[in-house]
């Protein structure tokens, strides 16, 4: 019995990364992804901040889920999440001021980030603490993975660098593709990612 329990727990973790990746499959949490993935550092910063809030709020919500009356559960979730977001906000202001300046309005927006509220509502409110922690971790990793990947691609095309280190070819640095930094680039990139994922999932379905 325990092994079965362990396998589906492990499943919670791995699902979040590819199978139920929040951005590409569940299509939630798009606002920060597109906005802060203009370069890899910002993407990593936002990824870590969002992951911290997601994991902590998942744990706390599943911890108090028995005392929360159903009719007023959304406001209570929101208060819990906003507490964590404000903590992240002020910690960032104290220790990484430059990153905080760049992420700007998107840190408070983590509160309404659909991933966190979605996971809290759909998962944490119904499962015990360990499962929600694993699920939160899985979703956070999936989210950070995609956002950093997009950050790398967009930074490479727009500055010929990755994490600030210039590695791009001369031609790219002399006339960079600024298109990638601007909003159209972000939408295009997500569209292509989603198409690739569809390709895998679609023919996987056909195989089944």
């Amino acid at each position: 019995m325990i092994t079965k329990q362990k396998t589906n727990r492990w499943k919670y973790l791995t699902q979040g990364i590819i199978l139920e990746n929040p951005i590409l499959i569940l299509m939630i949490g798009l606002c920060p992804t597109l906005a802060t993935s203009t370069n890899a550092n910002n993407a990593l910063g936002m990824g870590i901040a969002a992951s911290f809030v997601l994991i902590c709020s998942n744990i706390v919500i599943s911890a108090i889920r028995k005392f929360v009356p159903d009719s007023v559960r959304i406001p209570i979730f929101i208060i819990v999440i906003s507490t964590f977001v404000t903590t992240v906000d002020y910690i960032m202001q104290a220790y990484t001021p430059s990153l905080h300046k760049v992420l700007g309005v998107f840190i408070p927006l983590i509160v309404v980030n659909c991933i966190i509220l979605g996971r809290a509502e759909a998962f944490a409110y119904k499962h015990n603490i360990i499962d929600s922690f694993l699920d939160g971790l899985g979703k956070a990793l999936g989210f950070t993975l995609i956002i950093v990947l997009m950050g790398i691609i967009r930074e490479y095309f727009s500055k010929g660098a990755i994490f600030g280190m210039i590695i791009g070819p001369k031609a790219l640095i002399s006339n960079p593709m600024l298109f990638m930094i601007f909003p159209p680039g972000g939408f295009l990139l997500i569209g292509i990612f989603k198409a690739i994922i569809n390709k895998f999932i679609l023919n996987k379905e056909v195989v089944e």
Binding site: T38, N42, V102
Partner: peptide, 10 residues
Amino acid sequence: ADELKETPGL
């Protein structure tokens, strides 16, 4: 510059 509340990166 960085005080300006602008979309990051622009």
